[in-house]
Design a binder for these strands. Structure first.
Lengths: 168, 168
DNA sequence: ATGAATTGTTTTATATCATAACATTTATTT
DNA sequence: AAATAAATGTTATGATATAAAACAATTCAT
C-alpha cells in the first residue's frame, strides 16, 4: 500500500511537477491569498482600476480627485496643508496643482498675510466640475460597496483599514 | 438669537476660514477617511512601509518576496506563470528575475520540452535565504495582525479585501 | 538684527508600469 | 508538409509616481 510519504514523493505526470525533495517545507510557506499586504495591494489596484475607468472621460486621477475634494471642503488652505493631508511631497504637488490650474478648475491665490504661501480655491468652472466629479464618484463608490456586500461591510472594512494606517 | 444659518455663514477668525458662501454644499462632500479607495491606499502604503523597513537589511522588495515564495511553493513554473499570478507584465518580470539570479538566490533553467520557456528554481543559497526571509516576514506579519487586533480581524479583513479584487 | 525655519519651486534620480517590437520556438491550419 | 498563428522571453521606450537636494523669497525666533 502507498504511504502518505510515498504520495508526497510522487511526481505528478499531469503538471510535470517536481519531486517532493525539491520543495520540502512547502507547508510552512504562506499562501499569497492569506498575506495581508499582498491581498491589500491587489484590492487597492482593483479599486483604483475601477476609479480610473470611471473617470476616463473626465480624465481625472485619484490624487486630483482628492485635491479638489479637499479644496472644496475647506477653501483657502495652503498648498503644503493639502499636500500633507494626502501624503504628497510638496515638491511633487506643484505639477499636480499646475495641471488643475491649467484646466481652469482650481487656482492659487497669494495671500497678503503670508506672501510665501498660496491659498487654494476652486474656480467657478471648478465648482461645476465638482458636481460632475461627485456624480461619477458616487456611482463608482456604490459599485465598490456593492462588491463588498453593503454598507455594513464597507464600514467594517474602513474600520479595519484605519487600524493599519500609520501615524504619518 | 443666532440661527444655524448664521453660524454656518460666520467667518472663523481663528483659522482665517472662508465664508460659508465659498463652500455651500460641503456637507455632500465625502470625508477622505470614509472613501474606500483612499483608505485602502493609505493602509497599503503603511503596510508596505513596514515591510520595506523589515526587509531593509535583506534588501528585498515585496515583489521579490512574492516571486521567491511562489517559486518555493512550486519549483519549475515558467516565468510567464509566476509573472501572471502576481499581475506583473512578463516584460517587467525579466529585470526582476535578473536581479534574483544575480544575487544567486534563484535561477532560470531551460526546459528541454519547450525550448522557449524558462523554468524557475531556487538555488541552494536561495533555500537558505528563504528561511531567513520567512523569519523576517513572520515578524512583520505578526506586527500587522497585532495592529488589526488579532487573527479574527485579519481573517475578516482578508475576506473583505478578497471581494474587492477583480477577476484579473 | 541676525540666524533659523517655512513655503513654493526646480531639478534630478529612481522605481514602477504599460506598450510595442523582435527572435526563437511551438501549435494550428491548410 | 508547408504556411500561418500563437506563445515565450527579451529589449527598448515612454509615462507616471515618488523621493531628495538645493534654491529664493518670506516669516519667525532669539
Amino acid at each position: 500500500m502507498m504511504t502518505l510519504e510515498d504520495e508526497a514523493m510522487a511526481a505528478d505526470p499531469e503538471t510535470g511537477q517536481r519531486l517532493a525533495a525539491d520543495n520540502e517545507g512547502v507547508s510552512q510557506l504562506p499562501e499569497m491569498s492569506s498575506i495581508v499586504g499582498y491581498v491589500l495591494r491587489r484590492a487597492q489596484l482593483s479599486v483604483f482600476q475601477d476609479f480610473i475607468e470611471s473617470f476616463a472621460e473626465l480624465k481625472l486621477r485619484p490624487a486630483e480627485f482628492s485635491v479638489l475634494n479637499l479644496i472644496a471642503q475647506r477653501p483657502g488652505q495652503k498648498q503644503s496643508e493639502i499636500a500633507e493631508q494626502l501624503g504628497i511631497k510638496r515638491a511633487n504637488f506643484v505639477a499636480l496643482m499646475d495641471g488643475l490650474e491649467r484646466r481652469g478648475v482650481a487656482e492659487r491665490r497669494k495671500s497678503p498675510e503670508d506672501k510665501r504661501s498660496h491659498s487654494l480655491h476652486l474656480t467657478a468652472e471648478g465648482e461645476r466640475f465638482l458636481s460632475e466629479m461627485l456624480s461619477v464618484w458616487n456611482a463608482h463608490e456604490q459599485r465598490i460597496i456593492q462588491r463588498l456586500g453593503g454598507d455594513a461591510e464597507r464600514d467594517k472594512l474602513i474600520e479595519l483599514l484605519g487600524r493599519l494606517s500609520g501615524p504619518d
